[in-house]
């Protein structure tokens, strides 16, 4: 399969998954570019131990998490610099919410939900995104996250409980 064919088959998958992580079109585009650069660089090394789709899912998840970490670091350093400049209103907000898959009338509520999702630990967040938003089965999620179905069940349950708790806290 050529690189162009790989791109055409998986571009929407990559873009949508990146969107669930960063909730911003510009950032999702940047992640998608990084993903396909990585695919191009490593496609000859791909041994076929998993399906191409699973492999691309994994790259997208890793690139999205790396992107968030890098962005948080930049914002944090900006935050500290601003603190030095005595600006008390500065706060860390990883993404500027611009999710095209969200209905306009639900935008505010969705932003609140995603703010809570963004506070979850990485693996819980990934399990929740794959199962709840990407509608993957537990087996598919386990393959992508390279763990057992049992751990996926546990991760999802913990993510759901924590999210419900956080949502209740932010509503008050």
């Amino acid at each position: 399969m050529t690189f162009e064919q790989l791109y055409k088959l998986h571009t929407d998958l990559v873009y949508n998954l990146a969107l669930q992580y960063v909730q911003n079109t510009a950032d999702a585009e940047e992640i998608a570019q990084d993903v396909f650069m990585s695919v191009h660089k490593n496609m000859h090394k791909f041994k076929g131990k998993s399906s191409v789709k699973t492999w691309i899912y994994r790259i997208t998840i890793n690139k999205s998490l790396d992107f968030i970490k890098a962005k948080t670091r930049t914002k944090r350093s900006f935050f500290f610099n601003s603190k030095r400049l005595d600006d008390p209103d500065t706060h860390i907000n990883v993404s500027d919410f611009d999710h095209p898959g969200v209905l306009l009338e639900q935008k505010e509520e969705m932003k609140r939900i995603f703010d809570c999702i963004n506070e979850l630990p990485e693996r819980q967040k990934t399990a929740l995104i794959l199962l709840k938003i990407e509608n993957k089965t537990q087996q598919e999620t386990a393959n992508i996250m390279d763990c057992t179905v049992k751990s996926i069940e546990s991760l999802y349950q913990r993510a759901k409980n924590k999210l419900t708790q956080k949502l209740a806290e932010t509503k008050e």
Binding site: Y7, T11, D12, V14, Y15, N16, L19, Q20, T25, E29, A32, Q33, F36, M37, H40, H99, P100, G101, V102, L103, Q106, E109, M110, I113, K132, I133
Partner: peptide, 18 residues
Amino acid sequence: LLDNIKKVTAPDALWHKV
């Protein structure tokens, strides 16, 4: 509400950038 999130198409310009 998470069930209501729609799948979107990646922008055409993405291929040119890649």
